[in-house]
């Protein structure tokens, strides 16, 4: 058996490194980039957790999370570049 929880702990450490950049990163665009990276890693972590706990629901959550975070990225990007809604 693969030890998926160990992989998950490594992913969590990686997420912490990125979240540090969300807090310190100068300016809104850098924070947005770090946030989008964190979203990608969260989707991957959800798939790994699904395998770890053997729950298919987690993967469905991951799909919806990926699409919603994409919409979030697009709208925040539009806000940063100064478009009217």
């Amino acid at each position: 058996m693969i030890n998926w929880l160990a992989v998950m702990i490594a992913m969590a450490a990686c997420l912490v490194i990125i979240i540090v950049r969300i807090f310190i990163g100068p300016g809104a665009p850098t924070r947005l980039v770090a946030f989008d990276t964190a979203n990608t890693l969260v989707v991957t972590s959800l798939v790994i957790l699904a395998m770890s706990f053997n729950e298919v629901v987690f993967v469905d959550v991951a799909i919806v999370y990926a699409l919603l975070s994409f919409a979030m990225t697009l709208y925040v990007a539009k806000y940063i570049q100064g478009d009217k809604f």
Partner: peptide, 17 residues
């Protein structure tokens, strides 16, 4: 699909801001 498009949107927003 979403990552590449999102990167494009973020780069454009960064340059326009």
């Amino acid at each position: 699909v979403t990552n590449a498009t999102g990167a494009h949107a973020m780069a454009r927003a960064a340059h326009r801001s």
